[in-house]
Computed example of a mutant assay.
Amino acid sequence: MLILGPDAVDASLTYKGLIETLREAFKAGAVQPVRHHHHVERPDGAANTLLLMPAWTDLQAAGRSAGGHIGIKIVTVAPDNGKLSKPAVMGNYLLLDAATGEPQAMIDGQKLTVWRTACASALAADYLARPDAAVHLICGAGALSPHLAKAHRAVRPLRRVLLWNRTAAHAAAVAEALQADGIDAQAVDDLDAAQAQADVISCATLSSVPLVKGALLKPGTHVDLVGAFTPTMRESDDEAIRRARVYVDTRAGATKEAGDIVLALQSGALTEGDIRGDLFDLTRGKAAGRNLDSEITLFKSVGAALEDLAAGIAVYRAQQG
């Protein structure tokens, strides 16, 4: 069994390559049981979350008897880790041979997650963002933020990145790192003013209060929500949902786990029929993406085990040569 750390993941993937891998994965489909979602109570801090996300190649649908894979991601989310200067999200990905059950690889789950999450968002943006989108606002300065900037630049001609974070120094550090990679990036203090400038807004936070305000969105904006992974968390307000054409990564996941969708359904700002499509629909041509330059579009992602499986297989195959 291969043990593949974060450097091996980085060496195995490219943004354009993984975006296309995910496009083909959503077209083909996979078996995705409902993820296990457990709260781990702690006496001296915020509760942690344990996520178990299994998926396997749908060999029967593909007409094959061998050659597939089983994967499971084991993830913990510890909100208090920031106080310890550690990432909130940690995990590993176990890849198995589907025919024999033999372990093939243990892959760094944190690195795999940021790659697949950013590239899934960029895949959605390829259908939903304006072709001439130039300004990208990223809310949140965690490990995912530079990947969101680079993945979206693989599908749109984004010339400028604005970064906002509750801790301004973290936004400044990410902006500096992006600048070192040749990207025009700057930290901003005024989130409302930045929203009014942005063509694409990505939110990757653990917020329980709306950060993206519908009243501030200019026509043609694409909103990309990838944080807020429980029914009580949200990064957008009801007005943003009302004004937008709404899409999700998977209907089953988003309508049960994504607070931006669940809370909007509860308030009446959204109905299930208002959800225009998911990534299965978009990649298979069953749902139309952006129709007009003036439309506001919104994509909500809570993560799909299919994405981890596709990315894990891509890393494993790259390391196999």
Rank of each mutant, 00 (worst) to 15 (best):
A264G: 09
A143W: 13
S207E: 05
F299L: 06
G214I: 09
A287Y: 06
T14L: 12
A125T: 08
G273T: 14
K27A: 12
P157I: 07
S236G: 08
L50R: 06
A169Q: 11
A177T: 00
V315Q: 06
D260W: 02
D260A: 04
A175W: 03
L211H: 00
D249H: 03
T21C: 02
G285K: 14
A228I: 06
S85Q: 14
V302W: 01
A252G: 05
V188C: 03
L211I: 00
H222S: 05
E24T: 10
F229H: 09
N81G: 01
A25P: 01
G82F: 00
D293H: 12
R160I: 04
Q104N: 06
G140V: 03
I19V: 15
A62N: 03
R166E: 06
A120G: 10
A175N: 03
L225S: 01
T57L: 13
K83I: 01
S301E: 01
R276L: 15
R42F: 09
A187V: 00
A134Q: 10
T255M: 09
L50M: 13
T283F: 08
L158K: 01
T297I: 08
A118D: 10
R35W: 09
I19N: 04
K300V: 12
V114Y: 01
H38I: 13
A196N: 08
T57K: 04
L279N: 01
R276S: 14
I313E: 10
V34D: 11
Y316M: 11
K27C: 07
A187L: 00
L162T: 08
